[in-house]
């Protein structure tokens, strides 16, 4: 049973990897965009924002890495909705294959793209002065955490794709989710200056926790002054919050898939 699920997932990951090879534009969007963010935010905002205890570019990088993981929401949602709309989901569901493999194949493929984005961003970040200060082990742990978040966001995207379906509607829903997650967080600014209630909201945003944890693991300035649990223990809290998202969303998406048929 498990062996079949793994081999079916593997076959579908192969399908998605072929897509990337066929549509180089897709590759551009997941590599060039983050690079543009690094350069634009790093070089422009870097001159205007001061971070207590460090350099803004170093502070910024974890924010950009994390923000890029959020793009898995719309990418996965659009892919799933496309499969649903053109009848492929009907076909998969009529095959004697492992049914969860369809969504797992999708989300695992999203991880491959995320890893690629991270690599490109890290190289560009290094070029503009970002450094890792605590050695390779913690840095790899930070990237592991980023990919875990990317995985969670891909599952969220799968759920949205199955429920929302239309590409325009998906873009709108993804925007409504990604905007507050990104900007009600410590991605671009330290939270120290915010009103207390807003700071609490931002601190409990799982995205903030992941960003803070990455900063800690990279040895970059964290500028953490908050008292909320995720600010005091960013690494364990970020892992916990991300796992909660996966544990809630993945079964919901799997259930939505089981009853989804093309309309």
């Amino acid at each position: 049973m498990i062996a079949y699920a793994v081999s079916d997932t593997w076959a579908l990951v192969g399908r998605h990897m072929r897509h990337i090879a066929r549509i180089p534009e897709k590759l551009l969007s997941i590599t060039l965009m983050p690079v543009a963010y690094v350069v634009i935010f790093g070089c422009l905002f870097g001159t205007a924002i001061a971070v207590p205890g460090g350099d803004y570019r170093e502070y910024l990088m974890a924010g950009i890495f994390t923000q890029t993981m959020l793009s898995n929401i719309s990418n996965t949602a659009l892919g799933v909705a496309d499969d649903l709309g053109n009848g492929l989901v009907d076909r998969f569901r009529s095959l004697p294959m492992s049914q969860p493999a369809v969504l797992v194949g999708r989300t695992v493929s999203a991880l491959v793209l995320s890893a690629l984005s991270c690599t490109v961003m890290a190289v560009v970040g290094f070029a503009i002065g970002w450094r890792v200060h605590h050695g390779v082990g913690p840095a790899l742990a930070a990237f592991g955490l980023l990919l875990l978040l990317g995985f969670a966001m891909a599952w969220l995207g799968a759920l949205i794709g199955l429920l929302v379906r239309g590409p325009e509607a998906i873009s709108a829903v993804a925007f409504v989710i990604v905007m507050p997650l990104t900007f009600l967080s410590n991605a671009f600014i330290p939270l120290g200056g915010l009103p207390a209630w807003l700071r609490t909201v931002c601190e409990w945003n799982p995205i903030s926790a992941v960003i803070a944890a990455c900063r800690e693991l990279f040895g970059n300035p964290t500028a953490l002054t908050g008292t909320a649990l995720p600010s005091r223990h960013p690494v364990p809290m970020s892992v916990a919050l991300t796992l909660v998202v996966i544990v809630v969303v993945a079964p919901l998406a799997t259930r939505a898939y089981r009853t989804a048929v093309a309309r």
């Binding site: 399908r15 897509h19 009848g87 009907d90 076909r91 093309a262």
Partner: peptide, 17 residues
């Protein structure tokens, strides 16, 4: 599922493959 084949109203194939 191991004994049926299904052809739906639209060609359910992956366009990019």
């Amino acid at each position: 599922r191991g004994r049926i084949g299904l052809t739906g109203q639209y060609a359910a194939v992956d366009e990019r493959l």
